[in-house]
Amino acid sequence: MAREQDTQGMDYLVSLPRRVVTVYLPVLVFLVVLLFPFYWMVVTSFKPNEELISREANPFWIVAPTLAHFKRLLFQTEYPQWMWNTMLVAVVATFLSLAASVLAAYAIERLRFRGARETGLAIFLAYLVPPSILFIPLAAMVFRLGLFDTKFALILTYPTFLVPFATWLLMGYFRSIPYELEECALIDGASRWQILTKIILPLAVPGLISAGIFAFTLSWNEFIYALTFIQSSEQKTVPVGVVTELVEGDVYHWGALMAGALLGSVPVAIVYSFFVEYYVAGMTGAVKE
């Protein structure tokens, strides 16, 4: 009897049928829901046009896979250029935003200046203004500054939503770093700048990485600003380029569209897979001594 009680807890997972019902089945359902769009994208990008349009063919399978869509995408459109633009814009915007956010978050969280709380709140409110409204005044500014149809238009406007987001994420992370460490460093003779670079930032690496990944993903997928501030094909980013150049009137080049989406999601997937552990640690916070 006693033994039975001791081995309670996660015991219900032990027998196989139970495990199937309680663990594997829900996970499977979840995976199908999440991965089906991805599967659809992959299948479509390798399907020849005849199969895509055919009413008889099995929509979930390919009989004669082809690379024709990829060929079209890579050699008949400016896709490689879009890819490069997106990469450049996302990386530069992310780094600019992180640099600004680190300073903002540290100042708000640790310098305790008058009005720090209000500043933090104001930054958060800025995040709540939707880009679909903000793009109108921003467009006017972009025109005045002569940045229309340049990558700078995107590099400088993306931080408007990246900085508030990253600042809030980093504020939470900085808060989890014990205050005594800074006081100790202060007595050890460190300046504020040295405390930030030698104590806080090394400890905040998981937070920086998760903020960085988030900022990168948001910039990579951004659509409205890229659509409005960019006109010429060679300056476009992947999300805009694919939609504007591969849809001709009412003709959707589904195969090439999906191939573009597939290739476009690869860099993000790679970034995530490298840093997934840091990412989780960053979201859950806490520095362990």
């Binding site: 014990p178 005594e180 007595i187 104590i199 400890l203 520095v287 001594e289």
Partner: peptide, 12 residues
Amino acid sequence: AMVFQNYALYPH
């Protein structure tokens, strides 16, 4: 020099 209650050692 100060010794803190929770030691305040730099974890990294």
